Simulated scan of single mutants.
Amino acid sequence: MLELEFTAEDMARTRFAISPLWEVVAGLRVLLGADEQGLHRRWAEPVRARIAAAKLDLTPLAALVPPPSPSVPGFICPPPTTPWPSLEVELTALRRTPRELLRALSPHARPGVDAILADPDRRLGELADLIEAYWEIAMAPYWPRIRTLLESDILYRARRFAEGGTRLLFDDLDPQLGWDDGTLQIAHRYVRGVHTLAGRGLILVPSAFVWPRVFSTTDPADLPVLRYPPRGIGTLWETRPSPASPALAGVLGRSRARLLTELAAPATTTDLARRTGLTPGGTSQHLTALRASGLVTAHRAGRVVLYARTRVAEELLNGAGA
């Protein structure tokens, strides 16, 4: 059992954030075997195929975050410095990792870290470049959907806090958590003891890829972080496209509305043409228009291009009841 002791200052400094870089790390652990229940199978199977097609060698990153390890080296995913950091901002921090921090890591992280220490500037740059390549294939096409889930959880938690304070906030955050008399109790499998937050507060980070675990960081030299599964995680990869609503078709046109509705999961031009009955050329033209209007993004994965809905498109579909 891990116990985090809060003071009044800690409660005042507790906040939420999202971390794209953490999702990269946690998602890779899923691909390496951390998803025993198969929750992310619909995501993992096509992503593995695209990584193989792109011949992307993830060994340098995988060596740092193998699923059997009970923890993740802190420099790979430092605490978010803002509520909504971009991947670029977090990778900048990764590239600037202090050398003394690498040397101070615990022995379980040494195999991957020793290679970085041999030439820190070059190896950290290569690691950041590898993460960017992996992000484009595995995360970027799905990010609007993931981010919507994470933001929805944060809004729900904010309402809980407004209604009942800290106790209500933590009451249903995760079954492994309990709140009692200013102390957050975490049923950790590997970490035990009592830690005082010392006025630094706690950063709460919902994560799509941690279920059924929670991850915590209590290093005195850094900001405390708790990463937990968001509400509705079991529905994240559901793909049940419904007919485009008449309202949406009236604005976009029937074909474009249908394509947007079909993009419940990222897909290629060929896939969309087959599913909608449109010609490949017509599908490509409609996707180009949707991309120009900010409703669709394109991401190269090996030899194919995947199209995905943007966050704006997700909100538009929700508003139209599609």
Score class of each variant (00 low, 15 high):
14 T>Y: 07
8 A>V: 12
295 L>F: 06
251 V>I: 13
295 L>E: 07
271 D>C: 03
270 T>D: 15
97 T>N: 08
238 E>C: 03
177 L>Y: 03
105 L>K: 03
263 L>W: 08
219 D>I: 00
150 L>K: 04
33 G>C: 08
212 P>S: 01
48 R>T: 00
45 E>F: 05
111 P>M: 02
286 H>R: 14
276 T>E: 08
91 L>R: 07
75 F>H: 08
261 T>D: 11
15 R>I: 02
281 G>K: 05
58 L>V: 05
54 A>M: 04
283 T>N: 02
47 V>A: 02
217 T>K: 13
173 L>K: 04
189 R>Q: 12
56 L>W: 02
136 E>K: 10
247 A>M: 11
25 V>G: 03
115 A>R: 14
231 R>N: 09
162 A>R: 15
171 D>F: 11
57 D>P: 00
83 P>C: 07
180 D>S: 13
89 V>I: 08
263 L>E: 07
155 L>M: 09
321 G>I: 07
283 T>W: 07
285 Q>V: 13
195 H>R: 15
59 T>K: 14
13 R>V: 05
123 R>Q: 15
132 E>S: 14
88 E>N: 10
106 S>G: 10
83 P>R: 08
83 P>H: 11
292 A>H: 09
172 D>G: 00
30 V>M: 14
297 T>W: 00
2 L>T: 15
322 A>V: 14
86 S>T: 15
